[in-house]
């Protein structure tokens, strides 16, 4: 009993010696909270978001920069059901966060939040899953990214992404895997003029670039046919069309040179929004760089590789 009283006295003494502070996170004005949230990494923001409704709305109002966001099906070989989705986020080049979702709906719950708050340097979507398409098409917000890469995505996903993009997007690359072209009712050649139409409708900024690789023929001719009334100039590798904005034109380039020829297994196209003042002499005709971004094998020298390999191993 006496020891209890002593303890209590000691505690009371300590209490009276310590300064009493009442200020806490809840006393911070929202602008300060937002400033603090801005200094937090993604994981801490996710945790804070789960503490209370008020914190959730604050966290969701603060943008976060990601170096990379990669959404793809985990593996079509290992998981034949095709329902495993993998989301990987990299806030800086060396700081990654990734998660695999067995149920794509769980992945989308996260993705809706991530799209809402994320400002991506690179955003990569590699999936032809109907659930991904549906979710993207139903997403009502905007996607903010500098470069977007769409792999194995059909033209409806491309159109959905283009319509939801903020104007800060500099480039979109659509890389097609031959395996996915067998999808029922899929019209690969429709992509090119559909994309150009969206660029016209949304009046995309000068400099915006859309790159596409596909293994079906006819895109170039179909593009010409679709925009016959808008053509400013054309030759065998380029078509220039006018947009609804008198200051902007769209240039379609077909990637052809002495290495990548019409007989190559893939066709490469680049759509660019250019100034109406741009002269033909100012076109960038060197397609090697942008084709290499989509197909690293296009310029790969197999003879030299085999030669090096042979001499490296056997001599």
């Amino acid at each position: 009993m006496s020891s209890d009283i002593e303890n209590l006295t000691e505690k009371t003494e300590n209490l009276s010696n310590d300064p009493i502070y009442d200020t806490n996170w809840c006393h911070m004005p929202d602008d300060i909270k937002l400033e603090c949230i801005g200094k937090m990494d993604f994981n801490e923001r996710m945790s804070l978001r789960c503490t209370a409704k008020a914190e959730r709305s604050l966290v969701e109002s603060k943008k976060i920069k990601f170096y990379e966001c990669d959404i793809h099906r985990a593996s079509d070989v290992l998981y034949d059901d095709g329902r495993n989705h993998y989301v990987s986020l990299t806030s800086k080049k060396w700081n990654s966060f990734s998660k695999t979702f067995e149920n794509p709906n769980n992945a989308f719950k996260s993705m809706n939040y991530i799209w809402k708050i994320g400002v991506f340097n690179n955003l990569s979507i590699r999936s032809n899953d109907p659930a991904v398409k549906e979710e993207l098409m139903n997403y009502s917000g905007k996607i903010s990214a500098k470069h977007i890469e769409l792999d194995c995505c059909d033209h409806e996903i491309v159109a959905a992404v283009l319509r939801k993009m903020n104007y800060d997007v500099e480039s979109v690359t659509q890389v097609q895997n031959t395996g996915y072209w067998l999808t029922k009712d899929f019209k690969p050649t429709a992509s090119l003029h559909n994309v150009a139409q969206i660029l016209i409708d949304r009046d995309f900024n000068i400099g915006f670039t859309f790159q596409l690789s596909l293994n079906a023929d006819g895109s170039f001719a179909e593009f010409l046919g679709h925009f016959v009334d808008r053509i400013v100039s054309k030759d065998e590798k380029t078509v220039r069309i006018r947009t609804n904005n008198p200051d902007r034109h769209i240039l379609l380039q077909r990637g052809l040179d002495e290495v990548v020829k019409t007989t190559y297994r893939l066709q490469f196209f680049r759509l660019m929004v250019i100034s109406a003042e741009t002269k033909e002499s100012e076109y960038d005709d060197d397609c090697k760089k942008w084709i290499s971004q989509m197909d690293s094998e296009a310029y790969f020298d197999y003879d030299a590789f085999l030669n090096d390999f042979y001499y490296g191993v056997f001599q």
Partner: peptide, 16 residues
């Protein structure tokens, strides 16, 4: 709150 869970954050910052 670096590396803290929602519960830990709630406790540290006394978030109701």
């Amino acid at each position: 709150v670096k590396g803290k869970s929602p519960e830990e954050i709630r406790e540290i910052w006394m978030i109701p």
